[in-house]
């Protein structure tokens, strides 16, 4: 039983990162019906930027670890958001009116470009975050060892998700985003500037992705230029699992996927872990073709 709970926390920790990245996929999909393959690489860039900024400003030393990390996170999120908007401008906007699959290929091209750009700038070797930013101790919770950094990461990602949820549900701009996701033309008729909504989505999604990259860097210490590919695919799966286009769905999907992976490797097989995750996904889609929280929309009349 103790092992079960330990695995549950392991799964939630990984799942919260998936969820954070999945939000970017699901928001872009919501308004553009586009799978933004470059999103995983923006996540990678977030991790690398975090490392560079840590090394060059050493904020945690000058203004204290807590405030330093907050400022660092804001800087990373801001920079990755700008990059996300640039990607949208250059690779996606010219294809707005063209067949959807063309935009997918453009997204793949952007992904290859960004990944290799990171490799050429930072080199192909694994990069390491400075040690001792966050104390490497663990909390003993009824016999479960949970590292402090893990609790911190879980807390931060949940807080970010909650903030996004409130923003989307309660503010006027959030309502505009939801409206554009349901029907762009109708939203335009209601006086919503859809182009601005799209730009906003390409700022928020990458910002969260960049934050996830920073959290991965802080938690695991080790980053490499291909990590966006692995995490991106998982996060995209999570978004589909929860019902793509649906924001709470992406959060739920991410957490569930993390837990499935951890329990799958604990009780079935480690080597088959990813296969189990995909298998569960396919089963869910056969039973519930819209994902867990996805709404049933009429396809075409």
């Amino acid at each position: 039983m103790e092992e079960f709970f330990q695995q549950l926390t392991n799964g939630l920790a990984v799942g919260s990162i998936y969820a954070l990245i999945a939000l970017g996929y699901t928001m872009v999909y919501g308004v553009l019906k586009l799978i933004n393959f470059a999103h995983g690489d923006l996540f990678t860039i977030g991790a690398y930027l975090g490392m560079t900024l840590l090394a060059s400003f050493a904020l945690h030393e000058t203004i204290g670890p807590f405030l330093g990390l907050i400022v660092l996170a804001l800087m990373v999120m801001g920079l990755v958001a700008i990059l996300g908007a640039i990607v949208e401008r250059t690779a996606y906007r010219p294809l707005r009116e063209s067949p959807r699959l063309s935009a997918v290929v453009s997204a793949l091209g952007a992904s290859i470009f960004l990944q290799n750009a990171v490799m050429l700038i930072y080199g192909a070797r694994f990069q390491v975050y400075p040690e001792d930013l966050i104390p490497e101790t663990s909390i003993d919770l009824f016999g479960l060892y949970i590292p402090v950094v893990r609790i911190l990461v879980l807390f931060v990602s949940l807080a970010l998700m909650a903030a996004l949820f409130i923003f989307i549900q309660k503010t006027r701009i959030g309502t505009a985003i939801r409206a554009a996701a349901i029907d762009q033309d109708a939203a335009r008729l209601m006086g919503i500037d859809v182009n601005r909504v799209i730009l906003l989505v390409f700022l928020i999604g990458p910002a969260l992705g960049g934050a996830a990259g920073l959290l991965v860097g802080l938690q695991y210490g080790q980053i490499n230029f291909t990590m966006g590919w692995t995490y991106g695919m998982k996060a995209f799966t999570a978004a589909i699992l929860g019902g793509i286009g649906n924001i709470p769905g992406a959060m739920l999907g991410g957490l569930i996927l993390g837990v499935i992976e951890a329990l799958g490797s604990a009780y079935i097989s480690i080597a088959w872990k990813d296969a189990i995750a995909f298998f569960v996904l396919i089963l869910i889609l056969i039973v519930r073709p819209t994902g867990l929280l996805g709404e049933r929309v009429a396809d075409k009349i």
Partner: peptide
């Protein structure tokens, strides 16, 4: 050499923009 996939990725985007239907 090691920049070939970078150029390739950029080429994919450009070709798609120039000929959106393929």
């Amino acid at each position: 050499a090691d920049a070939r996939m970078l150029i390739f990725g950029a080429a994919m985007v450009v070709m798609m923009i120039v000929r959106t239907e393929g």
